Simulated assay, not measured.
Amino acid sequence: MESPGSYRFRPATPLYAYRQSWFSRYLSPPVRELLDAGPFAERALRSPRHVDACILFTDIRGFTELSRSMDPGVLIDTVDRCIGRQVNAVERYGGYVDNFTGDGLMAVFEGYGIEENACLCALEIVQRPDRMGLNRADDQVPIGAGLHSGDVVMGSIGSESRLIYTTVGDTVNVAARLSGRAAGCDVVISDPVRAALSDGAARHFRRLQGPAPDGVDPAMALYRAEPR
């Protein structure tokens, strides 16, 4: 089931999209957008802003054991294909990748219908590989995902020699912890995310029993889903 959201960011200028197309792939959409500000780009990049967003974290389950059992070349190829499939899904549902986390990623969804788009994206990402036509043995990697929505801060962090433009805040931290709670082929979401879903999307999720992960409000209801 596809429900692509509108892409928040304008296309990159010709400087980045055409003359430097190889380089633009190393920049996140917010950075490409802010660079369009011309002489005000640096000021814009250094000025933090508050945004309402839905944050998605994914992670390959059992990656440590997987890395020990695979040839390094096969391991990199497997992770590359797995991450590439996730990136395509994120972009198709109107989000963008904020950063990669080794064997997973952090994605940001902004704008209208962000929770629904993010959840549908997560459900697609964690689908069992055999149901997606991925039959190679090294493609059979289980993925868990976690989502939370709320206020985040976007801005530059680092030092004068190395800076990144990223998204931070409690919403990001909770989404990461919910991802850690998810099993393979599993999606865990917070109550604010589920509350924003349509009836059709909400039916995928059931109340998660047990204590909340460390760092997550124990009074907040959590929900989980396994893709069909």
Rank of each mutant, 00 (worst) to 15 (best):
S3W: 05
Y7F: 13
R8K: 08
R8E: 02
F9W: 15
F9D: 02
T13F: 00
R19A: 08
Q20V: 01
Y26V: 07
S28F: 02
P29A: 04
P29H: 07
V31T: 10
V31Q: 05
E33N: 10
D36R: 14
A37I: 01
P39V: 12
F40G: 11
A41Y: 09
L45N: 06
R46Y: 01
R46K: 13
R49Y: 02
H50N: 09
D52N: 12
A53W: 01
L56A: 03
T58C: 08
R61H: 11
E65N: 10
L66I: 14
S69Q: 15
M70Y: 10
P72W: 06
I76Q: 10
D77N: 12
D77E: 09
T78P: 01
T78D: 06
R81Y: 06
C82Q: 10
G84D: 12
N88H: 11
A89I: 15
A89D: 05
A89T: 12
A89E: 06
Y93W: 15
Y96V: 00
N99H: 15
L105Q: 01
A107E: 03
Y112E: 12
I114P: 00
E115D: 14
E116Q: 14
L120M: 11
R128T: 11
G133I: 09
N135G: 01
A137F: 05
Q140F: 04
V141L: 14
P142Q: 09
A145D: 03
A145H: 02
S149E: 06
S149G: 12
S149Q: 14
S149D: 03
G150T: 09
D151S: 13
M154T: 06
G155R: 03
S156N: 13
S159T: 15
E160L: 07
T167P: 02
V168A: 03
T171I: 08
V174E: 00
V174W: 00
G180K: 04
A182G: 00
A182D: 05
A183N: 05
A183T: 08
D186H: 15
S190R: 06
S190H: 07
R194W: 09
R203I: 05
R207K: 10
G210R: 13
P211I: 05
A212H: 05
P218M: 12
A221G: 15
L222H: 01
Y223A: 04
A225Q: 01
E226C: 09
E226K: 09
